[in-house]
């Protein structure tokens, strides 16, 4: 169980929005993480450098913050490796097929009031809520 943290959520969200806005204003690109990661995996010579640089920035951010005394992320992962692999495969395949994830559809697309992105965001949120409901309250697991 985690508690509601509105202040850090608002500050963090503002930073995320700033990064999304800057990537469009400076480079003219959508800051959808699945789009950037999936794009990097197609190795387009003209796009690859900025895509890799963005991804390096994502990983480096908590490390730099840690060097300044901030705690590193501490995600609780499933103990079953099969669940981790299946979850990763579904996330990779699904976000590419759908053309976006929480950032690409949920943020960039919704900020453009794109009907596609509003539909996709509604679907993956409701689906994920159903999965968590089934695991926690029907099956009674702790995944």
């Amino acid at each position: 169980m985690t508690s509601f943290t509105p202040i850090s959520a608002a500050i963090g969200g503002g930073l995320i929005g700033l990064a999304v806005a800057l990537l469009m204003l400076l480079n003219g690109r959508i800051a959808g993480i699945s789009g950037i990661a999936g794009g990097a995996l197609t190795f387009r010579r003209d796009e690859l450098p900025w895509q890799l640089a963005f991804l390096v920035g994502l990983v480096a951010a908590p490390l730099l913050m840690h060097a300044a005394g901030y705690a590193l992320p501490n995600p609780i992962m499933p103990t079953n490796w099969a669940v981790i692999v299946v979850g990763g495969l579904l996330t990779g395949f699904g976000t590419q097929w759908s053309g976006g994830c929480t950032s690409g559809h949920g943020l960039c697309g919704m900020a453009r009031l794109s009907p596609r992105s509003i539909v996709a965001t509604g679907i993956f949120m409701v689906t994920a809520m159903i999965v968590v409901f089934l695991i926690r309250h029907v099956w009674g697991g702790v995944l």
């Binding site: 992962m77 499933p78 669940v83 981790i84 299946v86 979850g87 990763g88 495969l89 579904l90 996330t91 395949f93 699904g94 976000t95 590419q96 097929w97 759908s98 053309g99 994830c101 929480t102 559809h105 596609r116 539909v119 996709a120 965001t121 679907i123 993956f124 949120m125 409701v126 689906t127 994920a128 809520m129 159903i130 999965v131 968590v132 695991i135 995944l143």
Partner: peptide, 15 residues
């Protein structure tokens, strides 16, 4: 769009 969002939603909920 829809199928991908469902698959991603399952992965998101699992992990």
């Amino acid at each position: 769009l829809v199928g991908g969002a469902v698959l991603f939603g399952v992965g998101w909920g699992l992990i």
